[in-house]
Nucleic acid binder design. Structure first.
Length: 130
DNA sequence: CTTCTTTGACCGGAT
DNA sequence: TATCCGGTCAAAGAA
């Protein structure tokens, strides 16, 4: 029923619309002040973004380019301090027999020339002995 | 034309 | 039981 729709409509996803204009110019100019996602050398596709009330943070959901690959990535950051505390959570492993593309790997380890995303602060919260 | 990003809505599980 | 949260998929628009 529309009950759920109503709730979601108000606090589901419509509440986290905070995307500014394109930072393409900034990215090309070498500006790393905007929010950038930690490039790990793999190709990811964003399939969702939600605001987690429990932690008061924005969580982005990424999936491997290949659908058969069970690799997933979750990035969560503060709505007020995107470059202040970034938490990246990796789930699963790549099975598509295609190691990190040399393009991204080279860009990430050589320089931020063709780098689509810049790496500001990488915090791994999954490093706990569960 | 193809590909990726973004937003909304729905679902399932948990309480 | 109903409600809430987190998580995922789909469609549209833009590049």
């Amino acid at each position: 029923m529309q009950d759920c729709t109503h709730r979601c409509w108000r606090r589901g996803s419509a509440g986290d619309r905070n995307q500014e204009e394109e930072a393409e110019a900034a990215a090309e100019a070498g500006n790393g002040s905007q929010l950038v996602m930690p490039e790990d050398g793999y190709e990811w596709k964003k399939y969702g973004q939600k605001f987690i009330k429990n932690i008061q943070k924005i969580r982005s959901y990424f999936r491997c380019r290949h659908r058969l690959c069970g690799a997933k990535k979750k990035v969560e950051w503060h709505p007020r301090d995107p470059s202040g505390a970034l938490r990246v959570v990796y789930e699963g492993a790549h099975q598509h027999g295609s190691p990190p593309p040399p393009s991204a790997a080279a860009a990430a380890g050589c320089g931020a020339s063709s780098n689509k995303y810049e790496l500001g602060a990488q915090y791994f919260g999954g490093a706990r002995p569960q």
